[in-house]
Structure formats: structure tokens, C-alpha cells
Simulated scan of single mutants.
Amino acid sequence: MTSLIISIIALCVGIANVTWQAARFLLEGPRIRVLMKVGALGGASLVSAPVENMKSLDETFASWSSQGFTQPVLVVEVVNKGRLGVQLVDFGVDVPKGASVKVIEGVITDTPMPYVLEPHQEATWAMPFEYVVNFANACQATWPRETLPLSAYVHRAGGKKVRSARSLTLKLARTQGDSS
């Protein structure tokens, strides 16, 4: 009976140890979160707001434009809450069907890619909003009967893609040939 009790205690200690090792592995690495925001540039300033707070993009951009923020942009903000740095290779916007767009020229940032995001730091990149609209139009032409949500993403070194939890769906005018 004593050996059974000792075996059960050893099993419990072993399971606790494996669980602790798995938790440390997950918590000590880089943990990045991607936030997608809508913004506008004006002079040397950037104003932005999370996509989930947008009621009407047209009204938001008009309001910001009247205050001097005249260039609409899509902002990708990345926060590293982990204990290790992570190298970010590029950023862009994609849809669930697998299509994506990334900016090769015209990136609006002081932080060039690739970039090492250190622990407990954040970085911000932006692209002209017209690129997002053009991409949404291309997706609508490819999949005319579907409304696809746009998500921001960053690629980590090693190939892992991390997407924003929130997405943006643009309401575009239907093409002339579309009967629905």
C-alpha cells in the first residue's frame, strides 16, 4: 500500500513538473499581439483608432481631414508581451481565402523591416489606405459573392504569420456586372 501511495505522489509531481516546463516554454518566449487601426497622417503626426471603434470610415476620414490629417492610412501596431525579442520580417493585410497584400514601397514608418521587437516594446507601421481599398476591390472581383474581412498581419522570422484579432470589412460598391 505504501508503494502505491508513493507512486501516486511521484506521478502527480511528474505531471506538475511537465506542466510547469510547458508553461515556462510558452511564457518565456516572444508573445506578440497585432493590432489593426485606421489612421491619418498630418504633417509629422499620426492619428489612429482601433478598427472596432469605427462606425463610418468616410465620416472618420472627413473629420480627421478637417483637422489637418489628410492622408488616410492603415496602421499595424505590434506589441511584444513576452520575455524574448522577436524578428519581424514584413507586414501586410490578408483575407481568409489566403490572398494578401504587403507594401514594398510607400511604407510609412521610422522603423524599417526586418525589425527586432524587444520584450515589452511596441512598434508601428502604416500603409496608404488606398492600397487596402485596391486590395479589397481585387478580392471582390475575385470572389464577387463573398464579403471578406481584412486582417493585418506580421511575419516572424521562421515563417510564422501572426494576425490581428480584429478585422475590417469594407463596404464597396458592387461591380456593374454583378447582379446581386
Rank of each mutant, 00 (worst) to 15 (best):
V93A: 09
F129L: 03
A123Y: 01
G43C: 13
N137D: 09
L57Q: 13
Q67P: 00
K171E: 08
S7Y: 09
L74V: 02
E146M: 08
L170S: 04
I104L: 13
P119T: 01
K55H: 02
L88P: 13
G85W: 01
Q121I: 00
Q21Y: 04
E105W: 03
G82R: 00
L117G: 01
A16C: 13
A23I: 02
T60Y: 06
G158N: 09
G68C: 13
T60K: 15
G29N: 14
A157T: 03
D178N: 12
S48P: 03
L27M: 12
T111Y: 02
W125V: 00
I108S: 01
L84Y: 01
L11M: 14
L148D: 06
K171D: 10
L27W: 05
Q87E: 12
K161R: 11
V78R: 01
M36S: 03
T147W: 09
L57W: 08
E52C: 08
V89W: 07
G177S: 12
A40P: 01
A49P: 10
T175P: 02
L41G: 04
L26K: 12
V89N: 13
A152D: 02
L170V: 04
T124W: 05
W64F: 06
L57E: 14
P112N: 02
E118K: 04
N17K: 12
E130L: 10
L84W: 02
E105K: 09
R163F: 07
G92T: 07
A141V: 09
F69E: 07
R31T: 00
W64R: 03
Q21H: 06
I15C: 08
Q87V: 00
T2P: 13
Q87T: 02
G158L: 09
E59G: 11
V38D: 06
V116L: 11
P112W: 01
V13K: 14
I108L: 06
I104Q: 15
I104N: 15
E118P: 04
V18M: 03
L168N: 00
L4E: 14
V51R: 08
R166W: 05
I108V: 07
A23F: 05
T70M: 15
H120Q: 12
A10Y: 05
D94G: 11
T19W: 03
G177L: 09
S164A: 04
P128S: 05
K161H: 03
S63L: 15
P114R: 02
P119D: 00
L4R: 14
L172G: 07
A138S: 07
G98F: 00
T124C: 10
A22Y: 08
V95N: 07
P30D: 15
N137L: 08
A99Y: 03
E146D: 08
A157E: 13
K81A: 04
T109G: 01
I6N: 15
T175C: 13
V78I: 05
T70D: 15
D90A: 05
M113F: 06
T2S: 15
A99W: 10
T109I: 02
E146I: 00
A138Y: 04
R156Y: 00
I8R: 14
D94T: 03
V13W: 10
P128A: 05
V13G: 12
V132G: 07
S56M: 15
Q21E: 09
T19V: 01
A44R: 11
S100H: 14
V162I: 06
A99M: 12
V73T: 06
